[in-house]
Design a protein around this nucleic acid. Structure first.
Length: 1015
RNA sequence: GGGCCGGUAGCUCAGGUGGUUAGAGCGCACGCCUGAUAAGCGUGAGGUCGAUGGUUCAACUCCAUCUCGGCCCA
């Protein structure tokens, strides 16, 4: 064919082509480049500049208040993701036009740091009691400061922008003073109560533990069945007593000798309990039952023999027990009873009292043991009765109080070391430890359990014993088991009205939650139900490293905030606050009560509280010393726009901050709560060191670059759990490549571009108008998505826009114009105008997600003279007038036809009839007049990237190419005729050529002339 | 064991007052280009929408149960 006549003179025209030219490299080299950008931003004081610029343009403030990570240990992927997400929120809002400040913070007090520091001292041979409090606290402060520095570097490496030079630290003196101030404000509101409750106590660390400080592990424990002999019953005797059910089992009745009535049998029976904590038996004060469970009186008829068992069972024929019916056979099996009979129904409320199983041992145990009704008793396991020691169990305490008994009558026989200590305890029990608190066997069972079991056996009240596994609370730090122990503690009451008549804290908090927006909305339930159900807030800790509970207790046991009249109390408070503001918390620890009372109240008999505050209280006040004290929000009525944390903080920081601000100011400290999920592996399993599926941020930074992690964060649905794996990161690296190359192509195509080249929308071809339409659509989507924290939507929109609209369609089609048209050609100028508008938007839209790459591209672009950094820009105004639905639907029609054409050409390629699409000049048959009209004014060949194209209104030959979903369109893939243009590679009729340039098309000839004459 | 939430192609995500063959990008396979080249273009194959049962003319979409997973709590 005529192809053979083509002269291959391509290189002759190469220098007349406008090929993309840019120094922006194809590959980012992120791991090396990123730290350099951070350095640059540092040097130019980018964060301060952003603040200044925002203030200068009168921007509205937008406050994301940072939830403080705990200052021990390096950052991990979860904390990195959390900070990146916050950075997306802050940068997104900054570019939306707000003054989006961000002050990072750290949580510095508390047990975990204290524990580490204790370890360090121990390593130097100094025990806990050898280190003075102030020295110890100084060491804790230093320890926290060290990790803050490490974490700060880690977060900065993630590209997180913020006021890193002025972060908030809960251990700063002004923070500590503010925390004390807030605490005293709560105390003065009358919501502070002193109580003695069984709380989780770690004998090893000699401290009370909060829920957050314990973890649950399986543990092997003894299990015992104990007899509580019936002491008295409630009914008159013996008249009116029901008879025993003799018909049921005459043989059983015969064994009861002279017993005919339930009364006699009951008085000879025992109520059976089952427990896994034998050491609590000496603290027993009641036995609980559930009125909803049916109970029976049982008699033992026969037991397994010593030969069968290898030991003598404790049960004997004739023994009588009251047990829940559902559990009787289980109990007898455990007691090695081979035969038994049920004698009667028993209503446990008719049992007036029981004897303590150690009754004979000491006068201490001669008292009556009452039967208490309680819902916590079940017949799932055990005996249907629950041994109740109100000092050592939450349920025990509650049922004790619910039945009208007094908290002050609760027997507290265990000291802070977990050792029995009480004057009236029988001698064998005194000084026994429950858990070993030192040595190699630290955390293991102490002497209490075995001795209690021995004494019970001796008393004949142990029916059976065994061993079982239970899931039980252990100290988070020492991993040792914890016990429940009644100790005096300070609480913030949830259900007590304020002294000024304001509603109880729970009501205030629930109301505040109603006024709060939640992202995702379904998570509102979570914190609401937690607040609705939570117990009073235990805020005291018997520790050293924390903000002191600055209370002085009167001789009557009342805190000064209650014991003194308000004016005097305030005077004391002022004195406390002044002291702490001047010298830090040591001012409290080193002083005595008189220091703060002298001249206001007679200090005789007053005591200073030496507990410290729960660290959750510290973090609950971060808004006070970070936002209010720095004047970022109004002291009384201000709220942060957003708190953003993981879902675990519904119990943590979201709640402590809520309760704190409700107690002091009656409202939530935030307008919106954004919750993210947790990072899991490719299979949706949580990350753990033991599973070996952890990913470290530094590792990602070194291998891929942090921007890939940011891309991953942005593209994930953070409201659920976020999956990550090497493959997932690789996928994001692919996305990055696509975005980077799009920027690169734009930069290359815009080489030498300036605004003077721009044309107006009216002058532009339809395709350019379509791109502007897409730009306007994307602008709306991007703005809305940044405002609603929906980054994954931005990512997918940008990927589609860059991959399909730009790369596959627009760039591909306009390549010819861009490379070959004369520079003055309106089409080419329109293309560059649109490309400039696209680049301007892509750079800013992507900047919050890809701060490094967009900065690099920005500084290489013709926009660089607008600002020193892309991050000093806002999203450019994008005219809604660019939206043109009619035009868009016209182009959808064109693209529909185009797909049929590319399909047809693909067949030709398969058959090796063509290679490049420019080798074709298809005939396109279109039945629908509307469809063909869509092409009016457009060059179909340009849009198809073919050398020619003929649109024909008609049906087309039967063997023409068709697509199933595009009816009425068929394509005959005619091969292009003529010669191949040496410049544009289009096939054309040589007869039309400019005689001076016979080997190129007239368009190319004109362009070459223009270029050469300009040169 | 309890509370809250979730389970759509290999991956990341769309979708719908319940109603024709469930979508996109990426990846994958195959092909093209060689003037975006460790790039670009095209075509194609991938889904019992976690499972089961129910409501309904019709369910991936509503209800129940189960299962798997996550956070919190015991």
């Amino acid at each position: 064919m005529s192809n053979e006549t083509t002269t291959d003179a391509g290189n002759d025209y190469r220098d007349t082509l406008f090929l993309p030219k840019t120094d922006f490299p194809m590959r980012g080299g992120l791991p090396k480049a990123e730290p350099k950008w951070i350095e640059r931003w540092d040097e130019m004081r980018l964060y301060d500049r952003m603040r200044e610029d925002a203030k200068a343009r009168g921007a509205k403030p937008f406050i994301l208040h940072d939830g403080p990570p705990y200052a021990n240990g390096p950052i991990h992927l979860g904390t990195a993701m959390n900070k990146i997400l916050k950075d997306l929120v802050v940068r997104g809002h900054q570019m939306l036009g707000y003054d989006a400040s961000y002050i990072p913070g750290w949580d510095c007090h508390g047990l975990p740091i204290e524990w580490k520091v204790e370890e360090e001292f121990r390593a130097k041979g100094r025990g806990k009691d050898d280190v003075p409090g102030d020295e110890f606290r100084a060491a804790c402060r230093e320890y926290a400061a060290k990790w803050i520095e490490v974490q700060k570097q880690g977060f900065r490496r993630c590209g997180v922008e913020g006021d890193w030079d002025n972060p908030y630290l809960t251990m700063n003196f002004d923070s500590e003073a503010a925390t004390v101030r807030e605490f005293l404000s709560v105390a003065m509101s009358g919501r502070l109560v002193r109580g003695s409750k069984p709380i989780m106590w770690s004998p090893v660390e000699r401290t009370a533990l909060a829920e957050a400080e314990v973890e649950y592990h399986d543990r092997k424990v003894p299990v015992i069945w104990v007899k509580f002999p019936v002491k008295d019953v409630n009914f008159d005797l013996p008249d009116g007593m029901p008879s025993l059910d003799v018909d049921n089992d005459p043989e059983a009745l015969r064994m009861l000798v002279d017993t005919e009535h339930v009364y006699d049998a009951l008085m000879d029976a025992s109520v059976l309990i089952w427990t896994t904590t034998p050491w609590t038996i000496p603290a027993n004060q009641a036995v609980s039952f559930n009125p909803g469970i049916t109970y029976g009186l049982y008699v033992v008829k026969d037991v397994m023999s010593e030969e069968e068992l290898g030991f003598t069972p404790f049960a004997k024929p004739g023994d009588k027990f009251v047990i829940a019916d559902a559990l009787a056979s289980n109990v007898f099996e455990a007691a090695k009873v081979s035969d038994f009979a049920r004698l009667a129904d028993i209503d446990p409320s008719t049992i007036a009292s029981l004897s303590h199983p150690l009754n004979e041992l000491s006068d201490f145990y001669k008292h009556d043991i009452p039967m208490l009704a309680g819902d916590h008793v079940t017949d799932d396991a055990g005996t249907g009765f629950v041994h109740t020691a109100p000092a050592h169990g939450e349920d025990d305490f509650l049922v004790w109080i619910a039945n009208g008994y007094k908290a002050s009558d609760i027997r507290d026989i265990v000291n802070q070391d977990g050792v029995y200590e009480h004057d009236e305890l029988p001698e064998p029990l005194k000084g026994l430890d429950i858990i070993r608190t030192s040595g190699k066997k630290r955390g293991e069972q102490g002497k209490a359990n075995p001795e209690v079991m021995r004494l019970l056996t001796e008393a004949g009240n142990l029916l059976s014993r065994g061993v079982t596994m239970i899931r039980d609370a252990h100290s988070w730090r020492s991993k040792a088991p914890v016990i429940r122990r009644a100790t005096p503690q300070w609480f913030i009451a949830m259900d007590q009205a304020g002294s000024d008549g304001t509603a109880p804290l729970r009501d205030l908090a629930l109301k505040a939650l109603e006024d709060t927006a939640f992202v995702p909305p379904q998570l509102r339930n979570r914190i609401t139900s937690m607040v609705a159900d939570r117990p009073d807030w235990l805020i005291s800790r018997q520790r050293n490293w924390g903000v002191p509970i600055t209370l002085l207790v009167s001789p009557d046991g009342e805190p000064h905030t209650v014991a003194l009249p308000a004016d005097k109390a305030n005077e004391v408070n002022t004195r406390i606050l002044d002291a702490i503001a001047a010298e830090g918390v040591e001012a409290w620890f080193s002083a005595d009560a008189a220091t703060f009372l002298d001249g206001i109240e007679d200090p005789a008999g007053w005591e200073k509280v030496n507990d410290v505050l729960d660290v959750w209280f510290d973090s609950g006040t971060t808004h006070a010393f970070t936002l209010r004290d720095r004047g970022i929000i109004d002291e009384q009525t201000g709220q942060a726009d957003v708190y953003l944390e993981g879902s675990d903080q519904h119990r943590g920081w979201f709640q402590s901050s809520l309760l704190e601000n409700c107690a002091t100011r009656g409202m939530a400290p935030y307008k919106t709560v954004v919750t993210h999920g947790f990072i899991v592996d490719a299979d949706g399993k949580k990350m753990s060191k033991s599973l070996g599926n952890t990913v470290e941020p530094q590792q990602v930074a070194d291998q891929f670059g942090i921007e890939i992690l940011r891309l991953w964060t942005a593209s994930s649905d953070f409201t659920e759990d976020l999956r990550i794996s090497d493959d997932i990161l690789k996928t994001n690296a692919e996305s990055y490549r696509r975005l980077r190359n799009t920027l690169r192509y734009l930069l290359g195509a815009l080489e030498g571009y300036s605004e003077s080249e721009a044309v107006t929308r009216e002058e532009m071809p339809g395709l350019e108008k379509w791109v502007l339409h897409r730009l306007a659509e994307s602008d709306a989507l991007v703005r809305k998505s940044y405002a609603t924290f929906d980054y994954k939507r931005i990512m997918s929109a940008m990927l589609n826009f860059c991959g399909v609209d730009l790369s596959a369609i627009y760039f591909d089609i306009r390549k010819d114009s861009l490379y070959c048209d004369a520079p003055t050609d309106v089409r080419r100028r329109a293309t560059r105008t649109v490309m400039s508008l696209v680049l301007e938007r892509l750079l800013t839209w992507l900047a919050p997600i890809m701060p490094f790459t967009t900065e690099e591209a920005f500084l290489m672009s013709h926009f660089a003279d607008r600002a020193d950094s892309v991050h000093l820009l806002t999203f450019p105004e994008t005219s809604a007038s660019w939206l043109d639905a009619e035009l868009a639907s016209r182009w959808e029609k064109i693209f529909k036809v185009r797909r049929v054409v590319t399909g047809a050409l693909e067949i030709e390629r398969r058959e090796k009839r063509i290679g490049a699409s420019l080798e074709a000049a298809p005939e396109v048959y279109i039945e629908d007049a509307g469809l063909i009209a869509a092409f009016e004014g457009e060059s179909a060949a340009d849009l198809f990237i073919t050398s020619g194209a003929t649109l024909i209104h008609g049906t087309g030959p039967a063997d023409a190419y068709r697509l199933e979903d595009t009816t009425g369109v068929s394509v005959v893939p005619v091969k292009a005729s003529g010669i191949k243009c040496a410049r544009s590679w289009k096939y054309f009729d040589p007869a039309t050529a400019d005689p001076a340039y016979p080997d190129i098309t007239p368009r190319d000839a004109a362009a070459v002339k223009a270029i050469r004459s300009a040169a």
